[in-house]
Design a protein around this nucleic acid. Structure first.
Length: 604
DNA sequence: AAAAAAC
């Protein structure tokens, strides 16, 4: 099957309201360069182009880019309000949402789902939910991802991030040829924990169904059989934790030859967990001109290095303030006390909480052993409590989490396995029985409550032994305008100078020069889509041919950001890279489609 | 010093 046949599978046309170009297929006609030539194609300029006459067959116009750009420039000179109004809107948006962004030719954000230009099979699913507007991550990430660019997103979980990479992934898959027998996934999502994998596949199932995509979830601790069946049946989307995936790759049960869209979720966490060798091993299996989206809550050196090495020409989006911040929907209460007081205080607290109608409570402790101990003692005393940590069998973890989710068991005691990304609805209380080893984890833990627009309460037992963290914690509390107990301030005072090595952790780099996407001279430089009424391009996401062919690989690796070892022989052992050098062309890597008609070069 | 992850 040729690539061109595949494009129209399942009615994959973009949103086609009032297409100026006739058929939906034509609406995907592309004449904006990916990060290169002008991406401007608004209807307002239709008049300047020699279009086809009614009744005549639609011919591909000859684009004279310099004339077009001149026209656009003049247009904005003559209609200054059009441009400035929109740019102001974007600046205001970025400022309000505390978004900073850097990179070349950054597409403008979108502010409504309609502007996302998603195909019908995605829109119909979106409409089923009662969401009002995209989250800030989605606003910025969708246009970037849909235009085929690489993306580094610095953002906390629980802000719509999963959908932020999943919808473009689904669109991407729908622009690829069908899987053939023996093909591995087209989209690969790597996540640090099994629970997260299960969560992500929920989303991919929900939104992939309408275009008949199949997803597979690959992680350890569970029988291989069903996972293999899902893969062998043909899964366009694969969500995986690294270990089991490598197992399957090494044993040849699946491959990544067809993978062209890669997501690294919670990259900082994965590095923390020592997944780097595994990540490398997996990435070597994927063709280097793939589209890659990397997500991380922080931007430390290690993550930066990973991004430089594996993401060519990426756009970086920082969502949220540049300092460590907690969700403001959460009431944070810090109880400075001694270690031996904790248990009594916990019981007292839970007694109060259980009076509430909504009482779902997540309790964090320091160690797996402690999680077990406390859970056992509480269970003995009749509390509806379960525990979850990494030494439990996956089955037990699943049970515990399920019973917690559906409310059968309102109290869950957990280690940090549950601190990040876990999305359980209506958790009303988080209790930090032990303060975590770093305040970053604190923010993640309490973030399990107050999700979306809900509110929640976080109680934290803070002992003199945690004094090193006091200053970070105070900073978080101050930022969130919380009441700060004098005892905590006293501890902070005493520990002045104790906190070591904090510098830089929250310095999110990359902000640099052009923070705002449409700023200054870049307005016409390509890829930008104007969401302003009629001037919005229909084709904002149909860029030109992807420049990232294999030919450009050399430029890639010889550039300032070294690729480490060259991909050509980059097999560090185990199994050899074997991305598909044949069938899939670089242009089909992105969701961008080349114009219909004769292929632009012999390569196709 | 802990947590997470493949068999």
């Amino acid at each position: 099957m040729s690539r061109y046949d595949s494009r129209d599978r399942r009615g994959t046309s973009g949103r086609d309201g009032g297409s100026r170009y006739g058929s939906s297929r034509d609406s995907r006609d592309s004449y904006g360069g990916r990060g290169g030539g002008g991406g401007f194609s608004g209807g307002g300029f239709r008049g300047s182009m020699k279009g086809s006459q009614p009744g005549e067959r639609l011919r591909k116009p000859k684009w004279d880019m310099s004339t077009l750009q001149k026209f656009e420039k003049n247009f904005y000179k003559e209609h200054p309000n059009v441009a400035s109004r929109h740019q102001d809107e974007i600046r205001r948006f970025h400022k309000e949402k505390q978004i900073t962004i850097s990179g070349k030719s950054i597409p403008n954000p979108i502010f409504t789902f309609d502007e996302g230009n998603f195909p019908d099979y995605v829109m119909s699913q979106l409409r089923r939910n009662s969401w009002q507007a995209p989250t800030s991550i989605q606003s910025q990430a969708w246009p970037i991802a849909l235009s085929g660019r690489n993306l580094v997103g610095i953002a906390q979980t629980g802000s719509g991030k999963t959908l932020g990479f999943m919808l473009p992934a689904i669109v991407h898959v729908n622009h690829q040829p069908y899987l053939e027998h023996g093909d591995g996934p087209i989209v690969l999502v790597l996540v640090p924990t099994r629970e997260l994998a299960q969560q992500v596949i929920e989303v991919s199932n929900e939104f992939g169904r309408s275009s008949e995509l199949r997803s597979a979830c690959v992680y350890g601790g569970a029988p291989k059989g069903p996972q293999l069946r899902d893969l062998e049946r043909g899964a366009e989307i694969c969500i995986a934790t690294p270990g089991r995936l490598i197992d399957f790759l090494e044993s040849g049960k699946t491959n990544l030859r067809r993978t062209t869209y890669l997501v690294l979720d919670e990259a900082d966490r994965m590095l923390d967990m020592g997944f780097e060798p595994q990540i490398r091993k997996i990435l070597e299996q994927i063709r280097p001109d793939r589209q890659t989206l990397m997500w991380s809550a922080t931007w430390p050196k290690e993550v930066r290095r990973l991004a430089e090495e594996f993401l060519n020409d990426y756009i970086q989006v920082n969502i949220g303030a540049l300092q460590l911040t907690a969700n403001h929907n959460i009431l944070q209460i810090i109880d400075v006390c001694m270690d031996h007081e904790k248990e009594e205080k916990l019981v007292k607290l839970l007694n109060e909480i259980m009076q509430e109608k909504e009482n779902k409570t997540l309790i964090f402790v320091e160690t797996k052993r402690k999680a077990d101990d406390i859970a056992r003692r509480m269970k003995r005393d009749g509390w509806p409590v379960l525990s979850i940590h990494g030494d439990k069998s996956q089955q037990e973890r699943d049970w515990a989490l399920n019973d917690f989710r559906n409310g059968r068991n309102p109290i869950l005691i957990a280690t940090d396995v549950a601190s990040r990304g876990l999305d359980v609805e209506d958790i009303k209380f988080v209790i930090n029985f032990d303060y975590p080893t770093c305040s970053e984890d604190y923010v993640h833990r309490i973030g399990r409550t107050g999700r979306a627009t809900n509110t929640g309460t976080a109680y934290t037992f803070f002992t003199p032994g945690n004094a090193k963290q006091a200053s970070d914690l105070v900073q978080v509390l101050r930022e969130a305008k919380q009441v700060i107990s004098p005892k905590l301030l006293q501890l902070e005072e005493n520990s002045r100078g104790m906190r070591g090595g904090r510098g830089g952790r929250w310095q999110r780099g990359g902000g640099g020069g052009s923070r705002f996407s449409g700023g200054g001279g870049s307005r016409f430089s390509g890829g930008n889509n104007y969401s302003n009424g009629g001037y919005r391009s229909q084709n904002s996401f149909s860029g030109g041919s992807n420049s990232g062919s294999y030919g450009s690989m050399n430029g890639h690796s010889s550039g300032s950001s070294s690729m480490g070892k060259p991909y050509q022989n980059g097999n560090s052992g185990g199994f050899k890279p074997q991305w598909n050098q044949g069938g899939v062309t670089a242009a089909s890597l992105t969701s961008i489609q080349p114009p219909p008609g004769p292929p632009p070069s012999g390569k196709y």
